[in-house]
Structures are given as C-alpha cells and as structure tokens.
Design a binder for these strands. Sequence first.
DNA 1: CTTCTTATATACCGATTGGTATAATGGATA
DNA 2: TATCCATTATACCAATCGGTATATAAGAAG
Lengths: 193, 193
Amino acid sequence: MDNRQAILDSALTLFYEKGYDAVGVQQIVEMAGVTKPTLYYYFGSKQGLLSCLLTEHFARLEAEMEQIKEAPDRIPDKLYRSARTFFNLASADPRFYLLMLALFYSGRKSEGFQTVYPLIEKYYLLFVDIFDNASQELGNMHGRQKQFAVGFSGTLNHYLMMAAKDMDDLSNLTITDQEVYAVVHQFMYGIYS
Amino acid sequence: MDNRQAILDSALTLFYEKGYDAVGVQQIVEMAGVTKPTLYYYFGSKQGLLSCLLTEHFARLEAEMEQIKEAPDRIPDKLYRSARTFFNLASADPRFYLLMLALFYSGRKSEGFQTVYPLIEKYYLLFVDIFDNASQELGNMHGRQKQFAVGFSGTLNHYLMMAAKDMDDLSNLTITDQEVYAVVHQFMYGIYS
DNA sequence: CTTCTTATATACCGATTGGTATAATGGATA
DNA sequence: TATCCATTATACCAATCGGTATATAAGAAG
C-alpha cells in the first residue's frame, strides 16, 4: 500500500464532495487509514496537499496541450483537439475536474482559489496564444483573443458540468466525438458571426 | 442602525470573498459590530443566515420571472427578458451573484450547495417550462428542453463570470442591452442549427 | 553490530469552531 | 408603578481546527 497515494485519493474524494474548507485533515487521514504526521511528512500542510493533488493531475495535460499548440493545424482542429483533451481528463477522473471547477468559482481570497489559479491560468494563456496565432486565419480579432479564450474554456467547463449534473455515478462520464464536434462547432459559430 | 441588515451585509461580503465554510460566525459579527447571540437571535444558525441571505436576494427575481413566463412573447423575447433580469440582479449586487455561483459549483454534499440548490432549481424549472411551452415554435425538441434550460442559465452565468473576472471594483458591473442581445442571439444560433 | 535515513504513531498544542445559558437592557403596555 | 416582550451582551461550552514535539520502527549502508 502506498500511503502517499492513499492520502491523495482520500483528499480528492472528500474535497470534491464537501469542499476544501469543510474537510479537516483528521477526516482525510482516517479515510486513508493513516495518521496526521504521515500526511504532514509528505505534504507539509493542508494547502500543500491540495497543491500537490492539483499539480499531479494537471501534469497529464502538459504534453498534449503543448503538442496542440505547436501543431500546424488550423483553428477549428486545434480547438477540437483541445476540447477532446480536456474531456478525456474529465472522464479519467470527474472528481478532479469538478473539484477544479469548484475551486475556480470560489472566492478570490480563499486558499482554494489561490492554489488553483496559477495552474488554470497556464492553460488559459495557452488558449490565448492559440487565438493570438490565428489572427490571420480569423481576421482582425480586435483584441478579443482573451474573450475567446475565456469563452472557450468556459464553454468546455459548462458542458462538463452539464454532463456530470444528473449522474450519481460519475465513474462512466464519457463525451463522444460527436459531442465534442458539436460543442466546438457551436462555439465557432459565435466567432464567425 | 439595523443590526439584522448589518449582519446580512457583512456575511454576504465575507462569504463572497472567502467562501461560506472558511468564514466563522465570530468574524461576521465583528464586522457587523454586534455579538454572536444577536446573530443567533435573528437567524438561528450559520446555515439559517445563509439561507435567509439567499432567499431575500432571490425574492427580487420572483415577480419579474413570473411575468416573463406568463407573457405571450415568443421564445427569443422571453430569453432576452430573462437574461436582462438576471444581469440586472447581478449588477445590483455582484457579491450575491458570484456567491450564488460559487455555492452552485461547490460539492453536492456541502452545506452551501444544499442551501442554494432549492432556490436555483426553482428558476431552472422555470426555464424548462419556457422551453416546454415552445415546442410548437421551435419544432420537436426531442426532450432536449432540460438541456436547453441548463445550457441557457449556464451561458448567462458564464458570461457574468467573464464580465466580473477582471474587475477589482465590482461596484459598476454593467451589461449593456447590446451584450444581452449578443448572448441570447448566439445561444439561439446553437438551437436552430 | 552500528549508524543513518525514511516513514510512521502517540500524544499533545493553542486557537478557533458553531452554539448557548443567563442576565441585563429598554421601550411599550397595563 | 409594574409587567412584559423584544433585543443585546458577558461568559462560557465541548468539539474540532491545523499543526507538531517526541519516540519508534524498519531497512540500507558502513
């Protein structure tokens, strides 16, 4: 048994279910079957645990997103591949994705928001970059790149929120390629019009 | 001085800034310039305070949304008026709207979510109703009314999140009629296509 | 066998948590 | 004046909060 991993998994479940602030470290270690010093040995603090949890999950996006950014694809394809990547991440562990959303929507001065924001900003800036490099393809964007970046990621998040909403068993959250296409298609509609 | 109102206002600010779970009742009463028994006299519990806070703000929507539902307008007009109403609510007090969003995105088993959900569901069902009564106008919706309802309210929330994102002073959060039109227009695009 | 390092548990810390028992205000009513 | 009711403060509660000092167990290295 890997205690470190057990702690991470228990924390993810509890943070997702009840929220970061509402969960005590005591509850986490009990669920993981360890004691508090073990948690503090690996993660240093409650916030360190959250930070580590988020960073390790976000790492899965890293390579793939970098690839998409550098590829010579046209905008619709880049957006399609990005959406597919995000949806795959959400399917792989809905708990993580929904926790991320909850933290992102929480108060700016909260520990949770401040922990997740740097990670989210990274991928947000990557989207800005994609739209920046596409001025020639989409014509003059009049500085609306940021708006599109926020809009696109917001659209993806909203779609996943919708998909997860009515499920009580999140273990088989899947988004088909047709759905991905439809989401990106509808978003592009808004850009071209 | 109205102590009850002072408590509600302090709670709204703190809940919005740091999150419901991260704020203690002690902090609330200190900011309001009262003591704990005063808070418990008026609201009974911390959750009672939140519930009261949300209910009183939601009440502003009540009449207007009921009017929109009963009106003989066509779908685009109903959606436009609904959007305008929601945006006005957000403008009137961005703290409340963003708190509501944070609670809605928080874990299903959290006190905050369970408190806000019945209130949100009410207006969600109202949207479902609007789309239900519009089958003849929009053609066979193949049971996608709920999807549209979630999608529409999600679009509004997402737009307000966007608008509030980069503002450090939320006191003048305004959404113009042109913007409202654009948002609804883009959403309708997705429906007809 | 000894020493060093990694990993874990017992038992504790002061501070804060949501909540309350009790009493004292102060204005209206009788 | 006496009574009553709404409102507020002092002082307290057990429980939990995030975090730690100390000791110990186990395996690797010398």
